[in-house]
Design a protein around this nucleic acid. Sequence first.
DNA 1: GAAATCATTTGACAATTGTCACAAAATCAC
DNA 2: GTGATTTTGTGACAATTGTCAAATGATTTC
Lengths: 189, 189
Amino acid sequence: MNKTEIQEIIKSHFPTLNKDSVIILSKYASFLNLKKRTELISERKRHHNFYLILKGSAKAYYTKESKEVCSWFAFENEIVATIRAFNGLPSNETIVLLEDSKLLQFKTESIKELANTNIDVSHLLNYIITEHAVFLEEKLYQLQFMSSEERYKALINVAPEILQKVSLTDIASYLGVSRETLSRIRRNK
Amino acid sequence: MNKTEIQEIIKSHFPTLNKDSVIILSKYASFLNLKKRTELISERKRHHNFYLILKGSAKAYYTKESKEVCSWFAFENEIVATIRAFNGLPSNETIVLLEDSKLLQFKTESIKELANTNIDVSHLLNYIITEHAVFLEEKLYQLQFMSSEERYKALINVAPEILQKVSLTDIASYLGVSRETLSRIRRNK
DNA sequence: GAAATCATTTGACAATTGTCACAAAATCAC
DNA sequence: GTGATTTTGTGACAATTGTCAAATGATTTC
């Protein structure tokens, strides 16, 4: 994939950017074709890139005492990053590809530097982090107000493809219930 | 409180701002002295301001079928806003003062316009929303991995003043348990 | 300061969910 | 394809938490 194609992708995914910003951004972006189960970001390590999924999917999870809990899933056209890694700290989440995927990789440091002088890029980062915060608030809201059955139905309603791509074990932990409980929810229709 | 004093406050709370940005920001800020129980932001309404608490405290809560669930508390030196209100949408949270408070009020629209041309301010907004996202992630992590007793202990460990300022009913909903359960947690030492 | 209101605690009980053990089904590796 | 591994489903039981009702304690209001 050449630079012009990368610029086209950036332009179509981030329509608020002006031409110059697209060109500058593309200098710090590269196309990747990676296999299922590749770890994009690993717990306790520092990372220097974030990603845009062009094709494929990924999951993020926390680990505690060998128990894995999924925090989110990402599909086509979504950004893959962790707040800590993005801010130069060791990540506390691991992100792994759920299938063979095509990605655009961005150099975090370069993009952040860019944001120091380019207000277009600063706004883009602002937008991305706001989207993530909105997602987190919605998730907390659902945990507080909805039963596990309602949360399950809401999830497969907004993202039915999740059932094809994600194991029920991961969906259960994402919803905040045990595998067995999810299994029973699914049995009751 | 005059403009110079307001500028001093802004400077000390947001040390990344350069002098010019402080002066511009201060034009859209005003000092407020408000009574306990004043609603800074109300559910289903659009709002045009956000706040910095100079003295006092506030709580944010969601309502569903007359059930209130606290989403956060804010004390001195903290920002008070909701993501939806900040983006011009009707808020789905209500924010109310827990005690008589001194606040700095900022005009959201003006500050956002400022962020369009002033990269200093754009970074400041970026920082604020990132802090909030980090808070939300930590809260989700605790809900997934910690028992209600551990969450209670963690809360009074990082913010012991909360017991003086917030009702146990509100703390219980914040922790995601019923007030009866919190009462029993507290009884067991 | 007395009455009224609100917040907290408690007990009894029910509902939900987690845990464990194991079976069945699906997927993977060779 | 076949055996091995992983994932999913199930039942029995225990633990946690929610709900309801009532009592106590604290605070507010006039």
